[in-house]
Amino acid sequence: MTLSLDDVKRVASLARIEISEDEAQQMLTQLSGIFSLIEQMQAVDTSGIEPMSHAQDMMQRLREDVVTESDQHLLFQSVAPQVEAGLYLVPKVIE
């Protein structure tokens, strides 16, 4: 699979990452490198091997349904750029 400059820009826009033309070019080179690595791995014969969804062959541990967290919003909000009435303020976004 080959990646185009437009693909890079589209992914950047979906992730809301602002990149310049130069950076996009650089990303394209780096990402293409990663893709060729993936292609090499794809070439390995994996027939007869059950696909894994996680690198570790283990199952998810579950926690008991109890409330263990206390209110720390003042601490968390001390590093927020803007706060009012307990709310985080962000540039207006309406979908």
Binding site: R63, V66, V67, T68, E69, D71, G86, L87
Partner: peptide, 16 residues
């Protein structure tokens, strides 16, 4: 482990 109770003051039940 944050609480799911409805109607709490904003952001008081949102943990790390």
């Amino acid at each position: 482990g944050a609480s799911t109770a409805y109607g709490a003051q904003p952001n008081t039940q949102a943990c790390g």
